[in-house]
Amino acid sequence: MALYELENIRHHYNGTPVLSIDRFRVAENSVTGLCGPNGSGKTTLLSLLGLISPPAAGFIYFRGHRARPYDGQIRNKVALLPQQSFLLKRSVYQNVAYGLRIRKNTDNESGQVAHALSLVGLNPEKFAGRPWYALSGGEARRVAMAARLALRPEVLLLDEPTTSVDAASAQLMREAAAEAHLQWNTSLIIASHDMQWLQGICHDLVYLFSGTILGKGKKTIVFGPWQHTSGGGAIRTLADGQVLAAENAPKDLTGTAAILDPDDMSLHASPDDTGAKKNTLKGRIVCLDMEQHTGFIRVLVLAGRSEFCLYLDAQTLSARNWQPGSEVWLAYRPDRIEWKAPGLQ
């Protein structure tokens, strides 16, 4: 049975549609990553999964049961760390203990609070008595995380947990999340721009764009300005003068973005071995990350200030001796480029 199943979810703010998901499924005891640009609907989706607000339309099922707003039974199993870590105007101890108290889980409360603070690298003796205003941004974020970890939730929803914190705090947050998954089998759903982390920890990586799920894995999005060509296609001139060509362009290209699937791209050492039917772009490898779950290497190629993402297996990468900085030729299929209109239609 799935942990979450979403059906025909539609959501809007003040009449502006922000989320449109026909089907979405999250497996039990899994780690799911949500990635996508700002405004793609990640926060809204987490808010719906955390039952913070009900969808305008559609159904959310939690372990097969239809979830309703304020459903106490489900909400006691789920905890959400919002993007803005807001602390209650109380001491650190009171902040961490708050959730335990309202869930009436107060056995060895001080021990639970101390353990949660330790998980995020905060010394309980030093921090428990501090008021909320005597914390740095990173400490406040970690206290907010500790308040969720203290609940030992079955589902932990993390909304960009590593943003606005220093590298050390971010690492502690990442370790705490991994610890929750390993120790208590907590299912994690993480929205983040930290692709390296997501690649490392997630079983599933879901890509959102403009309120819809584009699919699993990282897609490459190329924003305009796009210009129509005589054959019904469109071109986008990149910053270095290279041209990205696409077929089957929509009539109105205003604000439209092109989406390239990693499966429709390949990397080559020279333009001669890219295949006659493919278009090519010259670029440089800027980043290599291993997707721990699959063993594939995510390769980021920079061409004319646009980033292209594709996946290679370790053997291919090793045989080609490609490293960050290596010059490569990126081949793509103009006929397989998809188009995404700005905002939800």
Partner: peptide, 20 residues
């Protein structure tokens, strides 16, 4: 604005939302 989300995200029901 983050108060409501925080209270709800920690498991607060209607009563705790009011008192909190």
């Amino acid at each position: 604005a983050g108060l409501r989300t925080t209270l709800l995200s920690l498991g607060a029901g209607r009563r705790h939302l009011v008192t909190g």
